[in-house]
Simulated scan of single mutants.
Amino acid sequence: METFQMEIDKESKKCMFRTNGGNYWTLVSHGGIQSTATEVEANTMFHIEWLGRSVALKASNGKYVCTKKNGQLSAVSDSVGDDELFLMKLINRPMLILRGENGFVCHHKSSNTLDANRSVYDIFSLLFSDGAYHIKSVGGKFWYVSSSGLVCSDGDKPEDFFLEFLEHGRVGIKGKNGKYLRGDSGALKGDAATVDPSCLWEY
């Protein structure tokens, strides 16, 4: 498993992938992807499609990146199949601190819910699980989305959440119900069908 640094362009919101040596992935002739670019340009930018546990990458030629049998990457596919799906895993990120448009995410003082408008923050643990993440609360319990759409912090069993890096420095978090987490009049809810500013979190 290779490690790359993902960067998000502020204007286009497309992603660049940088190797440990400092070079960027770039689209070359015949759809090949090579780690040879030293500067960001159109051919080093990729559009990410967030597909639950996996992602698909579309290169500047409009084609999806696939893995060839020899292990090489190539942007030659018109649609997404198994060869075009990639698993993205955050490394060196065991802690999660979230700040939304109204403030930080913090445990509610007297219930199992979470506030999304506080001036102070709680630190949560982020645990990778096969393309998804489990979010553990300060007391060792897990986040989950209740049937009423509230995000609760006292689960005995972990529940899957999916991180989508949608803008520079901001992440969307989707629950297993397919809805995004958002700050709503103080409470953290998991009920947004589409992303708006209330669903984007500094992390």
Rank of each mutant, 00 (worst) to 15 (best):
A75S: 13
H47A: 14
V65L: 05
A56N: 04
T38Q: 11
L73N: 05
E41T: 11
K69H: 01
A37G: 14
Q34D: 11
Q34I: 11
G62F: 02
S74Y: 05
N70P: 12
N70L: 14
T44G: 10
V40I: 15
L51Y: 03
C66W: 03
E41C: 15
N61C: 09
E39W: 09
S54V: 00
A59K: 02
A37D: 10
S54A: 07
F46P: 02
G71Y: 05
N70S: 07
H47L: 14
G52N: 09
A75G: 07
L51R: 09
A75K: 03
M45K: 15
G62L: 05
V65Q: 02
W50L: 02
N43E: 09
E49Y: 07
E49V: 03
L73W: 05
K63W: 03
F46I: 07
T67W: 01
W50I: 04
A56Y: 00
L73V: 10
Q72L: 10
V76C: 05
L57F: 06
K68F: 12
S54R: 10
T38C: 11
N43D: 09
Q34G: 04
K68Q: 08
R53P: 07
A42P: 04
F46H: 04
E39Y: 10
K69Q: 11
V76H: 01
R53Q: 08
V76Y: 02
Q72D: 04
L51N: 05
T38H: 14
V40A: 10
E39F: 06
A59V: 04
